[in-house]
Design a binder for these strands. Structure first.
Lengths: 244, 244
DNA sequence: TCAAAAGTGTTAACCATACACCCATGC
DNA sequence: GCATGGGTGTATGGTTAACACTTTTGA
């Protein structure tokens, strides 16, 4: 990965101290990583190993290096701290309250990410750093202002899910309509009508019906579908608007 | 204004140089300020008086001071450079491409603002710095990556206008339904049906019909309305969703 | 009296919602 | 054969969209 090479070079150039005419806030990135499993919506958190907020759970994140893109910094920190990579990532909001870090003024550009838990379940929890998937409902009392960042990310996810086909980023490549519906019900926190949901999502023509069904289930096996990203991009250019 | 006092104190404390163990990008704020007049949607720009990009038009903005809130920094720079104050301001996006400023890595938190041009028309253009209201369509070739920031702000404005009652921030306190409709037509860049528009906006019950009509117009004078912010907040809490 | 914009209703098409039963499968 | 979730259609009410003429006012 070229970005990686670039980063390495920049990092090794960084022999401090560095002097500036004016004081500068520190700049970090933090990532709110969402994953979904059969039970609920989860967040990827790491346990802090030093002050401030030692032993508290926190969002993965870290300092932006000079010469590094913000998104690159977010992906780098995620990879370093949780081994999560190859994911949907989007900028969320920038948090800059002077008191949000007790040490000094630290401005943090927050990103949110959606990952297919089926792909990432094991790697994150076996990493050296203490990383874990925590149900969103139980992710309270985080370090710094991370509770607030999580709430902002949740609101964004809820808002965005209805107007952009981002839910598929949380599901395995092949999924059933019930899984998709449950995803919407979980994130939006309300029940949806099965028949209406199916009619609507299928009428958009963005799902490809596969010649495959579920396996090892103790009931009628459901049909599997996949999201047709190419078709979506095509329709999108033609002015189509996704909406559930 | 307390924020002002605070800023002054911080600024006078800032006797460099300042040393850090790791290199830090510089941190700035930039403001995309929209104003509307009878002709079109305008942007508040300032002409740069020094390199890089000397003489080019740019967004008002500047460095964030340590200990200063981001929003406070944005308001301060706006006030200093263009005398614009007391406005709707919201964070837009953070731009951090390492090459966006040729001097060094400068990360900029962009804000967008909506002002009532009727209130601010004169002050901005008579200020010492060369500030001017430029039609959005003619605001190209700006300094740094400001073209891109403007495009991002425009997209946000378009998207937000339909779901939040922010258009009123661009109009005088008393306005006609035709003015309101033209605002929507200008920003969304499409024609709307007069009867449907009126029915819809009035049916929300957020406009107060005043006992007043236009003056000095060479045709039938239109009724004036004002936006009932209190009513909106009330409805909003009850789960009401604004939508045009 | 003319020009300019204000103001006003109805209809048809479409879309969202509510709702209940039979089917396939594994145990 | 029973428990479990899969899969399917219709009717109703509400919302959107298309459409044109009369009124008021000042110049």
């Amino acid at each position: 990965m070229p970005a990686r090479t670039k980063k390495r070079r920049l990092a090794s150039d960084s022999r401090g101290p560095f002097e500036y005419r004016h004081a500068r806030p520190a700049l970090t990135v933090d990532c709110v990583v969402f994953g979904l499993d059969a039970e609920d919506l989860k967040l990827l958190l790491i346990q802090r190993d030093r002050a401030p907020h030692a032993a508290k759970w926190a969002l993965p994140g870290g300092f932006v290096e000079v010469g590094e893109r913000l998104e690159t910094a977010a992906l780098r920190e995620l990879e370093e701290e949780t081994s999560v990579n190859n994911i949907f990532l989007e900028q969320l909001y920038t948090f800059g309250e002077p008191a949000r870090d007790p040490r000094e003024h630290v401005v943090s550009v927050a990103y949110y990410a959606l990952v297919k838990l089926s792909d990432h379940r094991i790697r994150a929890s076996t990493d050296a750093r203490d990383a874990a998937w925590v149900p969103v409902a139980r992710a309270r009392g985080l370090a710094f202002d991370h509770d607030r960042i999580v709430l902002t990310a949740l609101a964004r996810l809820k808002g965005k899910l209805r107007y952009q086909p981002i839910g598929f980023e949380l599901l395995p490549r092949k999924f059933t309509l019930t899984q998709l519906q449950q995803l919407y019900e979980t994130v939006l926190a309300r029940k949806l009508d099965k028949r209406n949901f199916r009619r609507k999502i299928l009428s958009m023509g963005l799902l490809v019906e596969l010649d495959e069904t579920q396996r090892d289930v103790a009931h009628r096996a459901a049909r599997l579908y996949r999201f047709d990203r190419r078709k979506y991009q095509q329709l999108n250019r033609a002015g189509f608007n996704f909406e559930i």
